[in-house]
Design a protein around this nucleic acid. Structure first.
Length: 574
DNA sequence: GCCGTTTTCGGCCCGACTGTTTTCAGTCG
């Protein structure tokens, strides 16, 4: 049982308890535990009850449940709940505007168990006949059903960023004196976003009307003086909040989240005799505002350093802010090189010179050309002879001194048995080897782990490329013991790649943090297939920041000579 | 169900908007 599977069961328990109208704090405890499981860097299944109980939020009962899930694949508690309610009614819970109370009534009064049954009930007027519901609720449900069919609900971070940027520009044009910014998961740099959360301060209330008039608005979901929601063409929901200028910082803090971070912060506020909400930080005793205009002041009044949004995930940032040990996070401007890209020699769109010139203009100081190896026949992958000839041309161009240093590398396939796709003497003759998995994704966990460990053992491997193989919103990562992989990488001096392809972003933030804590080092690489790809380095930097990485954790923040000598192949010779 | 610098019992983050109400419950973030 991996952490995600454990999290799924815990989350289902929380959802079913909610439909049962159980104690809301019990529900929160289960939901919280699901989040803990999903984000925990270590395999919970490997911890015993004592180890589990050391995790804040996991007590006696939850530890026992997690042990039971790890050992048997499920818990009796969960099975009993599923017997009471068919699991398909959880689909209803994900409809916009339909919550646990509504689901419970629909099931109890109408026997509705599936989305199709709900649609039928809404269409023939049975929903509006229920107590507490009416024609509007019925219409809302039908709309939600329609939207649910059309939109998956989550979006890649860069898509969310672009959509938000266009909307922000439109709103700022209307209210040039106001401050209007993206908050929520977008500001925290999460790899996927649900809704777009925007915050305006110091704007006139007619900004809300202006939002509704935006040309990409498909439907207004709700509109008030301080809060409005719209559905955009393309499936994004945008929420806009409006606060007074003197509440700007508190509102930024509040709407940036994460939810868990906010709860902890508010809890801290209470312990210190304050009340924290989106309008400010107030004394409980006499309701005097002590902070609100600036986010920094809110944190400072709570005895904390300002915490970068990317860290606000309840992964130790509050303790670090209190102890003044927050890391100086890596920044896009720290990157001097890009160590993974393709050219027309295999499946890239631009040749080596074009890529080099585009890198120089980005600007970057050095790049590695890493075309595919022969196993990737579809991509016209290189065999030993072509790889070495290609390397010769790359080095010849480097001698021309065109304003960016070039390394002749390869992205070498890791074959299903863990051997590498090209002979050792060929790999040794190159400047840098990125080793990656592109086949046999469905291997058993142990087999995949052994495969990667064997590849890491090859002394010619400098970087492990997109280490978990995930494609965000498309393909789950392959089953692999990431813990063992990052330990081996740290021990052997193999850098872990943070791949900046927008649907990879692999390693993810949680694993980057794990690797950092184990002393592994990283590279942030575009995996570009055209000269336009260098811009995406910013997304990998966000992941790195969410993983608490400092410049010193990332090899390609170093000047060229220092970078070269920090590669595994050159460290071993030294 | 978790948790403890008033605590092993009694708290647990907070507010806006909507719809069906007539003072509030449900949903959302």
């Amino acid at each position: 049982m991996d952490n995600l599977a454990i999290a799924r069961i815990l989350r289902e328990i929380a959802d079913l308890l909610e439909i049962k109208d159980e104690n809301p704090f019990k529900i929160r405890a289960y939901r919280n535990s699901a989040d803990i499981a999903a984000n925990h860097p270590h395999e919970l299944a490997l911890l015993d009850e004592t180890g589990l109980r050391e995790i804040p939020g996991i007590g006696k009962d939850l530890a026992a449940r997690i042990r039971e899930i790890a050992e048997t694949g499920d818990t009796t508690f969960h099975r009993e709940l599923v017997e009471e309610f068919p699991p398909t009614i959880l689909d209803l819970l994900h409809l916009q505007g339909v919550g646990p109370k509504t689901v419970a009534v629909l099931y109890r009064e109408l026997g509705v168990r599936t989305l199709d049954e709900l649609e039928a009930a809404a269409r023939d007027g049975r929903v509006r006949a229920l107590k507490g519901m009416g024609p509007k609720k019925e219409a809302l449900i039908l709309k939600a059903l329609d939207e649910q069919k059309r939109f998956a609900g989550r979006h890649l971070l860069p898509d969310a960023h672009d959509t938000a940027a266009a909307l922000l520009e439109y709103l700022r044009h209307h209210s040039p004196d106001a401050t209007i910014e993206a908050v929520g998961s977008l500001r925290r740099g999460c790899d996927t976003c649900g809704d777009l959360d925007l915050l305006a301060s110091g704007a006139a209330p007619d900004l809300m009307d202006h939002l509704a008039d935006y040309r990409l608005v498909e439907r207004v979901l709700g509109q008030g003086d301080t809060k409005s929601s719209v559905l955009l063409h393309g499936g994004f929901q945008a929420d806009l909040r409006l606060v007074a200028a003197d509440s700007r910082g508190a509102a930024m803090q509040y709407f940036t989240g994460s939810k868990a971070h906010n709860i902890a912060l508010r809890d801290r506020a209470i312990r210190l005799g304050f009340k924290l909400n989106e309008y400010g930080l107030f004394t409980i005793a006499d309701d005097v505002r002590v902070a609100g205009e600036r986010e920094e002041d809110v944190y400072a009044s709570l005895g904390l350093e300002w915490i970068p949004p990317e860290l606000r995930e309840m992964r130790g940032e509050i303790e670090a802010a209190e102890a003044h040990t927050l890391p100086r996070l890596v920044d896009r401007a720290d990157l001097r090189g890009d160590l993974h890209m393709h050219t027309t020699e295999t499946d890239g769109k631009d040749d080596v010179r074009s890529m080099a010139e585009a890198a120089r203009d980005t600007p970057l100081e050095y790049i590695a050309i890493t075309d595919h190896s022969q196993s990737l026949a579809m991509a016209n992958g290189l065999d030993e002879r072509r790889a070495l000839a290609h390397a010769g041309r790359i080095r010849a161009l480097d001698v021309e001194d065109i304003g960016v240093r070039l390394l002749a590398g390869i992205e070498c396939d890791i074959k299903p048995d863990g051997s590498l796709d090209l002979a050792d003497d060929c790999l040794a003759a190159l400047d840098l080897v990125v080793a990656s998995v592109h086949s046999a994704f469905n291997q058993e966990r142990q087999q995949m782990t052994d495969r990667l460990l064997r590849a890491l053992d090859n002394p010619h491997v400098d970087v492990l490329g997109h280490p978990t193989g995930r494609l965000i919103l498309k393909r789950e990562p392959y089953a692999v013991d990431v813990d063992a992989i990052v330990n081996a990488a740290a021990r052997l001096g193999v850098a872990l790649e943070i791949n900046c392809q927008v649907d990879r972003l692999d390693l993810n933030d949680v694993h980057a943090r794990l690797g950092r804590d184990r002393g592994a080092r990283f590279v942030i690489s575009s995996d570009g297939h055209s000269r336009l790809a260098f811009g995406r380095l910013r997304w990998g930097v966000l992941i790195a920041r969410r993983g608490w990485l400092r410049p010193s954790d990332v090899l390609n923040t170093q000047p060229f000579d220092a970078f070269r000598s920090s590669l595994r192949r050159n460290r071993q010779q030294a």
